[in-house]
């Protein structure tokens, strides 16, 4: 007899809900206009903020897609931070009320832990989950961290960005090139056709295992300003080479510290998580290390890389197995740590 967990994620822009049965995902949804349309009912006017408008329809749809009744749920897991306080409160309040109404346990989940635990979601194509300990590079628009993972809930950040996140470096480089925000995926696309050695950008010098990407942004800015002064269509003519060179620089920087972390800890099981793990250059660089026999590499399915509720549900599942529940007094937190 397995366990049904409802996961709720509302730490930033999107309201998401997921239902899992043990480690298998039955439904994983992000609120959008279609969900509102199909919900049918009028959303109460008092729902002034986006998450408040989204939360009931998206959970209703997740339960229907999973084809279960709410009374079958064993527990409710929700993101308790870090994130925007207003957004977190909507998810937390709903989760508390729903657990009280259904009389089932309430589980609080750390968003950053959940990104890493998304590696344990069971999937037809992704059966391989890492053994402990392993290193996880969590890279997204808002985060860049190397995490030493000793157990499901024993995680230590051993390196992190001291300024911009890697995803932000992609997006801002794209912006400087005149691409729309968020332009990270476009850089990846153009990079496929470009020469990564066409232009060289400096690597940051950061002690330990930390990262810095703010200097790269500035050097791209100055480089393009100087080029545009003599050639107004420089970016258009070199879009692919620029994208490939920028992507290579960011990936090289990410890999350099990750390799250092692997050397220092002696750990060869390496995972990635977060939105930037969709980047083809980063995936290639990691798989290259695996082909060379240096590392065992673990990459979650794309749907579980960006912010999603399935990762909250799987984290909830592991807490459920440990009877690690919370009570109605729990308060969301905004800061990491």
């Amino acid at each position: 007899m397995g366990v049904y967990i409802l996961g709720i994620e509302s730490s930033c822009d999107d309201t998401s809900a997921a239902v899992i049965y043990d480690r298998k995902v039955l439904a994983n949804l992000i609120a959008n206009q279609d969900i509102h349309k199909n919900y049918g009912g009028v959303v109460p006017e008092l729902a002034s903020r986006a998450h408040q408008q989204n939360i009931v329809p998206v959970i209703d749809k997740a339960l229907r897609d999973a084809n279960i009744h709410k009374n079958q749920l064993h527990a409710i897991a929700f993101t308790n931070g870090p994130g925007l306080l207003g957004s977190l409160l909507v998810g937390a309040s709903f989760a508390k009320s729903f657990s009280l109404a259904l009389n089932i346990p309430l589980i609080e989940v750390n968003h950053m832990h959940a990104h890493i635990l998304s590696l344990f979601i069971e999937d037809e194509q992704h059966k391989k989950a890492p053994d402990f300990p392993f290193l996880c590079l969590t890279v997204s628009g808002g985060h860049t961290q190397i995490v030493l993972v000793k157990d499901f809930f024993d995680m230590t950040v051993i390196g992190q960005t001291i300024d911009d996140a890697a995803g932000e470096a992609f997006d801002k480089a794209a912006k400087i090139m005149g691409l729309p925000y968020p332009g990270g995926p476009l850089i990846d696309k153009y990079a496929q056709e470009g020469n990564a050695k066409a232009f060289r950008f400096p690597h940051p010098v950061v002690p330990g295992l930390d990262y810095s990407f703010s200097g790269l942004k500035t050097s791209i800015l100055y480089f393009l300003r100087d080029q545009l002064a003599s050639d107004p269509i420089f970016i258009e003519n070199n879009k692919n080479d620029l994208s490939a060179s920028i992507q290579k620089t960011i990936v090289d920087v990410l890999m350099k510290q990750l390799k250092k972390a692997a050397r220092q800890t002696g750990i060869r099981r390496i995972a990635i998580a977060g939105g930037v793990s969709a980047n083809s250059g980063l995936r290639k660089a990691l798989l290259h290390e695996e082909e060379r026999g240096n590392w065992d590499v673990y990459i979650p399915k794309f749907a579980y890389c960006t912010d999603n509720a399935a990762m909250i549900a799987i984290a909830g599942y592991y807490k459920y197995l440990r009877n690690d529940f919370t009570d109605q007094q729990v308060v969301p937190f905004t800061r990491y740590k």
């Binding site: 930033c12 808002g142 992190q160 960005t161 300024d163 932000e168 703010s214 905004t334």
Partner: peptide
């Protein structure tokens, strides 16, 4: 962001001051 790093340091912040472009607000 660099100036804000230093302003925070003047005010006694020991945390890492990083860019909040994605989260919109850091505390």
């Amino acid at each position: 962001t660099t100036l804000i790093k230093y302003l925070c340091s003047t005010l006694g912040v020991a945390d890492i001051v990083s860019s909040p472009t994605f989260p919109i607000v850091n505390e």
